[in-house]
Design a protein around this nucleic acid. Sequence first.
DNA 1: AGTTAAAGATTGGTCAGACCTTTGTCCGGC
DNA 2: GCCGGACAAAGGTCTGACCAATCTTTAACT
Lengths: 263, 263
Amino acid sequence: MTDFNSDLFKTIIPEGRGNTSEEVVSQLREMIHRGELHPGDRLPPERDLAKLLGVSRPTLRAGIRSLSAVGILQSRQGAGTFVVQSEGPPQLDSSPLRLMASLHGFTSAEMFEARQSLEMAIAGLAAERATGDQMASMAEEVTGMFASLDEPEQFLVHDMRFHQTVAAASGNRILTALMNMVATILFDARRKTVKHATDLKESAEMHRKIYRAIREHSPEAARLTMRDHLMLAQRAQEAEGIDYSDAADVAGNGDGADANPAT
Amino acid sequence: MTDFNSDLFKTIIPEGRGNTSEEVVSQLREMIHRGELHPGDRLPPERDLAKLLGVSRPTLRAGIRSLSAVGILQSRQGAGTFVVQSEGPPQLDSSPLRLMASLHGFTSAEMFEARQSLEMAIAGLAAERATGDQMASMAEEVTGMFASLDEPEQFLVHDMRFHQTVAAASGNRILTALMNMVATILFDARRKTVKHATDLKESAEMHRKIYRAIREHSPEAARLTMRDHLMLAQRAQEAEGIDYSDAADVAGNGDGADANPAT
DNA sequence: AGTTAAAGATTGGTCAGACCTTTGTCCGGC
DNA sequence: GCCGGACAAAGGTCTGACCAATCTTTAACT
C-alpha cells in the first residue's frame, strides 16, 4: 500500500529562487499538509526520492535533516526514513527552547512561571472535561506516589505521569505539547538532584488535592491547587542547585545514560 | 573580534557510537550552553570548522542544518553562518507546531483555546508588572487601531503589536515565545481573510478594555477581558473559512514589528 | 581627492560518485 | 521447527569539485 507513484512526489519546479533544499522541505511539508503522508509512513529510499524530486541526494538529505531536526521525520540507518509517530500525545522537541534558554539566559524562575501558567490553564480545562477513565488514571498515579515515598526515582515517574494524565484530560493537545516542552526541561534538571528526597509526602498530598478538585469539576480550585503545588515544587527545587542546561539525548536514542558528572 | 582559537572547537572524539553529525550538533550545543557562542556571533567557515572538529564538510553541514532548522543558526551564502540574533524577544519557530497540526488534525478550536489560555496568563502577569513605558506603547497601539478602522491590513498590524507589547510586559519571555508560536499561525490564517473587516470597532474597543485592566493593575480583570476578546475574535474568524496550513516563510528574519519605537 | 565600478578572494550551496555500517530478510543447515 | 549466516537494502560519511552569492580590495574615473 505504500506504492509511491511518482505522482505524489512531483519534480521540483526550477523556481530559481531560494535554496533548492528549502524547496525540498516545502515539498515534503506540503505533502504532509495535503494529508499524503501520515504518521508512521515510510518515505521512499533517498536515492529514489532524490530522483523523483529532481534533486541530488545531498540536497534531499539536507531537507530531510531539517524536518528531522524539528521532530517530523526520523531516519534509521538501514531501515529508512519515517514520518514520526508518537504513541502518546504529539510531542514538540524541547531542545530549541533549551538552546534559547542558554542563549538568552532565561532564569529558572521564568521557566517555572511558564510551566505554572500552562499547568494552571490545563488543570482548569481538565476539571471541566476529565472523563471517568482519566480521573481513574490520576488516582492511580497519586496512589503510586504514596507507595513510593521512599523511592525518589519512582516517585518522579508517577509525578510526571500524573501531570501527563491531567494534560490529556484537558483535551487540548497543543497546550499539552507546550507544557511538555517546558516540563521536560525542568524534569531533566530535577532528575539530577532527585536523590535528595524533599518532602515527597507533602508533594503527594498536593497532587491528591489537585485530583480531588478535578474530580469535583472545580476549575478554579484545580487552578489554585496546581498553582500552590508548583510554587512549592519550585521552592524545593531551587533550594538545591539547579541547572537546566545540557541533556544529551533528545530524540530518545537513550544510549549513554551516563548522566554522571564527569567534570 | 571573536578570535576562534582552535581551543574552543575541540576535535570530536572518535566515540564510534552514534551518528557523527549528531556529535557535531552536541558539540555546538554545548558551546552555546557554555556561553562560548553568543547571538550574532559568526562561526568559522565551514571548511575550517570541519577541520577543527575533525569531520568532513558534509557532516558538519548536516549538523549546522539541524541547528538552523530549529532557529538557532542561520547561514547566508557568501557571508557565513551566524548565531541567530532576534532584536525583539526570542522567537521559536512555529513550523513544527504547524506541521504537527496538519499531521494530527488539530482543530482550529483547539488552537484558539491554546492561544486563549496563553494570553490570559500573559495578560494577568502584565497587569501585575507592566511599566509605564509599556503601558504607553499599548495605548499607542490601541489608538492606532481606532485610527485604522477602515484599513484592515493596518488594523491587523496594530492588533499584533498590541499583543506583542502585552507579552513583553508580562516579563516572561518563554510564555511570550510560546504564545507567538500559536498566534503566528492564527494571524497567518487571518491575514488571508482580512479583507472582510468584521467588527473592527468592537475589537478595538475590547483592546482598550484590556489596556485599562492592565493599567489598573487588575490581573483578574485583564484575564477575563482578554478571554472575552479572544472568544469574540475566534467567533469572528471561524465565521469565515479558515485554514492554518501553509506559510512560506519560516526562518525569514522576521524583522518588522518591533514594538518599542521609543525606548 | 573622493567616489564608484570592476576584479578577486571568501564562503555557503549543490552536485557526483564511491564506500561503509546498520538493518531487514531469506534461505539453508542443524 | 528453530536458528544463524549470507545477501540485499538503505541511511551515514567521505573526497573532490564546481557554482553562486557576498564581501573586500583595488583601480579607474569624475
